[in-house]
Amino acid sequence: MATSAAPTAAGTEHSATGSAATLLTADDVAMTYRTRRREVTALRGLSLDIGAGEFVALVGRSGCGKSTLLRLLSGLLPATAGQIRVAGQPIDGPPRQARCVFQDYAQSLLPWKTVAGNVRFGLRHAYEPAEGGHDERVAHYLDLVGLGHAADRYPWELSGGMQQRAAIARALAARPQLLFMDEAFSGVDALSRAKLQDVLLHAWAEEGLTVVFVTHDIDEAVYLADRVVVLHPEGRGVLADVRTGLPRPRGQVTTRELPEFLHHRRELLQLVLD
């Protein structure tokens, strides 16, 4: 059941990154929060290049600034120093070619619209206008995340995992080049989570996306990504940048049993814990 949604052959082409053009660049970025009494530097001296088509996971201990970094990269928060560029252009606010999937799906989906209505919202506010009729595009994205049967239901009638799938379908309907995900799967139960991971990998392979995925779960990072970026615990930039290169397509059972998976898992856990 879970493996059926895993990436098809198209997914293997993706893993041959490295030669791809840089899509997202963070150049010596810093973020300092100013309160009336003091200044708190959440992040400084961070530089990162992400190529088109990559699947990158950002991990690190809590308080390392990984969510701050994602808000900076997605343009929701202006950096206090340094520069972020998308396709070579310095950003000033959320870049047009990016969409976000938030952890708090219940506050992100529009409760007054059905699941199909939410996907239609993504189509209406798309980076690239959809080809073909709206209805068939809606059906396409709902099928892509396995929600074809729930089109006419309201988000609050669905389980957490299904709501997050609807949020992914809505983001994909906007045909972004970049997808930012902030702890997107931490609010759902373990089984739904495994299903969501495979839905995401499938969609990534199908839609030719670049994904930046913030998580505190090392297993999830290794399972999903080709590249795991570990942030320094005190917000001093990148601690390690690990290219895992696990074979695709990935399967919840087989991939997690691979010696390379266990090797990277151990390596990354030690990096995060020490």
């Binding site: 929701l76 959320p94 047009r96 969409r99 976000c100 708090d104 506050q107 992100s108 919202f121 980076y127």
Partner: peptide, 18 residues
Amino acid sequence: THRTMMDTARTFGLTWRQ
């Protein structure tokens, strides 16, 4: 309006009126 809802509007590129 919840912050995540406003962030959603911003990342989908909605204008002020939208």
